[in-house]
Design a protein around this nucleic acid. Sequence first.
DNA 1: ATGCAGATAATCGTATACAATTTGACCCAC
DNA 2: GTGGGTCAAATTGTATACGATTATCTGCAT
Lengths: 237, 237
Amino acid sequence: MKSTSDADLSADDSAETSTQQIRDAIRDAIVERRLSPGTKLSEGDVGNLFNVSRTLARAALQALSYEGLVSVEKNRGAFVAYPSPDEARQIFAARRLVEPGILREAAARITPSQIQHLRQLLLEEGRLMSERGQTARRAEIKASGDFHLMLAQISGNAIMQRFMEELVARSSLVIALYGQSTVSSCGHTEHGDIVAAIEHDDLDTACRLMVHHISHIEADLDLRERKSFGLKEAFAI
Amino acid sequence: MKSTSDADLSADDSAETSTQQIRDAIRDAIVERRLSPGTKLSEGDVGNLFNVSRTLARAALQALSYEGLVSVEKNRGAFVAYPSPDEARQIFAARRLVEPGILREAAARITPSQIQHLRQLLLEEGRLMSERGQTARRAEIKASGDFHLMLAQISGNAIMQRFMEELVARSSLVIALYGQSTVSSCGHTEHGDIVAAIEHDDLDTACRLMVHHISHIEADLDLRERKSFGLKEAFAI
DNA sequence: ATGCAGATAATCGTATACAATTTGACCCAC
DNA sequence: GTGGGTCAAATTGTATACGATTATCTGCAT
């Protein structure tokens, strides 16, 4: 799957504008956890980094704020989003709400070649899981999300696809913040089970597995409210 | 319900920035069909209209493009979105996919006072339906959408609420384009039926009614592909 | 030392300026 | 009259400029 999210559906002027490139670059950095929640993203710095003016940097940050990955505070600047536990719960609730429906749509339209593609994704995911090192970890995070995005793409509904892209990206942010164990190590086998259920045309099972899978990811988080814990974290980070 | 969509949840600096005001004003104009699909929204004109520079006008248009209400074409400018029949189908498919889930969540959390509020909305809707004139028609369009938005709000999931706001707004655009009869005249009684089912704790019926309701709205559209009809329309508009 | 007031620096908000691109008009050749 | 080509007007893309706000530092009074 391409790294840029909407490259397939937006048939605009072939060349992506620099604002979009910057947006995508920062988004990738956030999703792959090279940028931690709360990190300040000043317009000047972003502009310098990508050799553009503040105008374009600002536009990119604005775009990311619409996706919920960046929060801009008036007169204070933009920061990598720091989703609250409540927000995290809402993200997973939203996924439980939409993903079964997406799965049903996808299963109804899936072609053998797409199943093949899904299996390939699982293989890649498994390979990355056994590898060591930061780079592999980042790739694993992305691959794990790509499974869900692929289903959304197969469903054929561009609107739901875009929404899923937002939800998956924000999930990554939440896991970075509240995740306890290493990245959903259980996730991979669960993905495989879902594909198997799809192949057996057992949609009800597939949906049930999907809901459980999402709940498992959420269950691996520590979403307790840390009241004045912020200070310590400021040192830790 | 407040007219500005996210006034309740964004607890930012109390005062809305002028960009947001412009965005909301244009969005309202689109949703209430004072701006037709395809209308050009040049940055200069928008800026002059609201007495701000192109910078802010551009930001507002950019924001609307993320919501799917405006399409910006590189080096050509911004236009009120002109959703294709396929896009229209995807919008309603998305609504069928998410609204039952939202309804279930809402029903689980709804309070008597909120039911009261819903009924009040229905009353208002009925009143507007019997009135004559453009103003009433516009208000009816908004009220009809507010019913669905209210359910999303009651569901307590801000993410789904925002998504529904986008879907409802885009639906209005689609109806403006492809609607045949007057605004969903059947809609009002269907809304009432859904509320009744909620009150009777008959969730399955409520969801079924909701799906049918959405399909009814879609069925009232003429989504046949008009191939080279665009030219004639250019004259009609 | 602590706390507050003013100055200083850094950053954001908005407007304006200039380059690049598109659009439409006009003219000419055919 | 049609087709093509050049130029001018309008509009967008991007950078820069300047005022406004916030954050940081300094120094003085307590």
